[in-house]
Nucleic acid binder design. Sequence first.
DNA 1: TGTTAAAATGTAATCGGTTACAATAATTCG
DNA 2: CGAATTATTGTAACCGATTACATTTTAACA
Lengths: 329, 329
Amino acid sequence: MTTIKDVSKKAGVSVATVSRVLNNKKVKKETVEHVLRIMKELNYSPNQIARGLSNKKTKTIALVIPVINNPFFPELASSIEHIAHKYGYKIFLCNSDDSKEKLADYIDTLTSNYIDGVIINSHVVERVDIDKLIQNKVPIVTIDRKHFEHEFTHVSVKNKDGGGIAANHLLEIGCKRIGHIKGPENERNATERYWGYRTTVHKLDWYDQSYVVAGDFSVEGGYKAMKELLIKHPTIDGVFAANDLSAIGAMKAAYEWNIKIPDDLAIIGFDGIAMTKYMVPSITTIQQPLQKMGKIAFEELMNKINNPDAKIKHHELDVSLMLQESTLR
Amino acid sequence: MTTIKDVSKKAGVSVATVSRVLNNKKVKKETVEHVLRIMKELNYSPNQIARGLSNKKTKTIALVIPVINNPFFPELASSIEHIAHKYGYKIFLCNSDDSKEKLADYIDTLTSNYIDGVIINSHVVERVDIDKLIQNKVPIVTIDRKHFEHEFTHVSVKNKDGGGIAANHLLEIGCKRIGHIKGPENERNATERYWGYRTTVHKLDWYDQSYVVAGDFSVEGGYKAMKELLIKHPTIDGVFAANDLSAIGAMKAAYEWNIKIPDDLAIIGFDGIAMTKYMVPSITTIQQPLQKMGKIAFEELMNKINNPDAKIKHHELDVSLMLQESTLR
DNA sequence: TGTTAAAATGTAATCGGTTACAATAATTCG
DNA sequence: CGAATTATTGTAACCGATTACATTTTAACA
């Protein structure tokens, strides 16, 4: 690998000058051109590790995501990777696998690796992890999952609106009894989605709390929840699942009981993962603007990196109805 | 951040000794204990960037994957991340987004970041990229996609066997006319899967080349291919899709034509992505041993890193039939 | 107990950059 | 035209580790 010294020698200038050229500092125009030419000649590219040591910055951010089995996360990760690459940032992947230990491990490595910042999407993060990051002044932005979100800039969507849109949509297509499959207890997004639904239907005469059953954002959870709903309310003809995986589980349950979708039962999910398009029938869902979320999260992180005492901001983006077959009547 | 100097001062020894303790070099037992105690006291953890500069090793590997929209890749990525973390390695995520430029960009950064090695799964990689890596002596292992695989240690599965198992399974459950939805032209895995199928069915009297139609590993491709098959061969009662996404597309097509699965048409895919379980009906598939693939790829990479002239090896792992509803008769 | 070999530790150069400060060259202006 | 600025470049310290080589300490042995 050619180094800055090689360039300096061949160009007949000091390494300081070469470094200045690299960093666009004040250098005479002709010198810049000359040095640049030599760099090209030697096929030089600066050693990022050395730069990192000196700058305490590495143009790398960490992306903390929970387990991979909900396709929402890869899709979100992809949107972040996309924008990060545009800005010339590298991504250090921290897949927490829903394990506190593994996550703590990762958190520990961030400081000693001069990671510039972190985008966190995990409910597994603990107070002590967060404190460690804060103490080391690692800029943080949280996305999607709400956990310590009041302490940081956070990006998520208008979950309550989404819940409302979902419930209203089911009413509009003529559903008379609408159930809800909730997300995990204590998951803020889930609760908000539930409230959107509840606000929309609670004044209707058929509604009572038994139309809401617990799920856990998983296919299996949605499956069980749907069975429960069907047992409690055989006349149910619409269901709003708190996320797409649950909706898929619900569909599976309905299928087993020979209930036709959308005719006997309309199903709507939440997230807008690609899989909803592929299901048979495809599943109507409340779409989260993934690209936008990734972009905002990343840009807020950049802001925080370049301006450590930027004040925190909470972004709640709009969601939209993605109409597909499971509610097509 | 406390540095090695702080530790050295407080412990009353030289930095060299501290470094030796860090690296388990010969140091008097009492000194080791003493230094270790001081480290703990100061909550010291060595700066990995500084270490990297000196060692030209960073305990980081790059993972190059194509686009994220085939869930197979996140699942594979996850398996690699899993084992890498166990070995104390970090993962630098290179999502090529199927773009040659983006990938070339990433390749360029690897050397200047002292990335220890690369696991590549991408058909987008170009000769020039590969050459750049080779020239810089970056250890490489390829996985899944076959591209330049003869130059490197490579991990994939017995695709031909898988194709055979799939076709045989369809025969065993009584299918009389079995079509095949191929993967992309020039994709070696796809070709091998096709040969497995062909070898199994080509001597049967009904078989001719028209039972094989082109797909592209996507849902849309599978959908179109299935329609084509149904038009050409209305009596078809089994189909082997070269990957799970195609199988899903095929299911969608069948559904539109009111063909019942598995009764009228049995479908089998390839890969074993989680999604197959979730489909309604769930899709029988040929499962790739993801965890094992990730483990072997990573360990081979470690081997190559620690022993640069290790000879290349080609691993072809066994696949297995994952029986689900789409072929359940 | 004095020599010598072996073990333990320290000094200082090094990895490849950045940058404060010093030095030199080019301009400006009375 | 010479002093004062300003622009440009160079020197050397520094980032935080590793390690070759030198030095000191300890152990072994006659």
